[in-house]
Design a protein around this nucleic acid. Sequence first.
DNA 1: GTCTGTGCAAACGCTTTGCAGCCCT
DNA 2: AGGGCTGCAAAGCGTTTGCACAGAC
Lengths: 139, 139
Amino acid sequence: MHTHHENIRDILHQRGLKSTPLREKLLQVLKKNHGPMSVEEIGKKLKGLEFDQASLFRTLKKLSESGVLSQINLGEGFTRYEFTCLTHDHHHHVMCTECKKIMVMPFCIPPKFETWLKNKGFTNIGHRLDFSATCPECR
Amino acid sequence: MHTHHENIRDILHQRGLKSTPLREKLLQVLKKNHGPMSVEEIGKKLKGLEFDQASLFRTLKKLSESGVLSQINLGEGFTRYEFTCLTHDHHHHVMCTECKKIMVMPFCIPPKFETWLKNKGFTNIGHRLDFSATCPECR
DNA sequence: GTCTGTGCAAACGCTTTGCAGCCCT
DNA sequence: AGGGCTGCAAAGCGTTTGCACAGAC
């Protein structure tokens, strides 16, 4: 399911979701943006469109549950949302402690972690990894 | 600084903090407990002692800033606190998605991650890694 | 026409803050 | 005696919820 090639109406309809102005514009914004965005950032990019904050939260939640978006928690006290693009599927983030810019970290953890957990009887294993650092520009 | 060998009054005084009933009992609770505790869990263990929720939050924050406690964020929407024990310093956590039990994961990520960041000009590099899984008991 | 999504308003949970008074050192 | 710590009350922020209406299919 190459969601990044399809148009937004199809992405929604394929999952049994209705296509509305808020949803379409919201997905456009998130599709265009590189890193994971906060609700505040998304809201600002939606200017020109009238919408309610509650609807925005509801929409983001529903689209995350449908797999169109991914929820990202970088320990900031709020959730970020990222367009789920299956070709660049699994990745991690680096956030600058100064300017808060977010970059993508292209590696993932070695398999021994999950093997260790499997051997102990764990299933449905998932993980979260992110880095904080001072970026070259802020140094 | 082998904080786990010293008594709690000394830990506080060494850092220029006053010793009070709340702080002492709170540190006893966190020192005894294995995993990182939520504020609610800590509060329940403090029964017998009268205290205000705001003081509890303030105390936890101050002790974290002083390095006596570590703040742990497992993406639950609230912060957990752990007694910082320098001998078992750096570690990660596994939380069961069902029963929410937290275990310690004894490995850490390979150095290539931080090397990659250093080569790109990043400094002050830190990371956060945690796992979620169904534990053997809940399977 | 049906059912889903929206706007509005109110409430939620976790956490912080201002201020007066207490108590540790 | 002095300043740090506390209790109380109020507010903050991100997020959720109930309800009636509008709009997508």
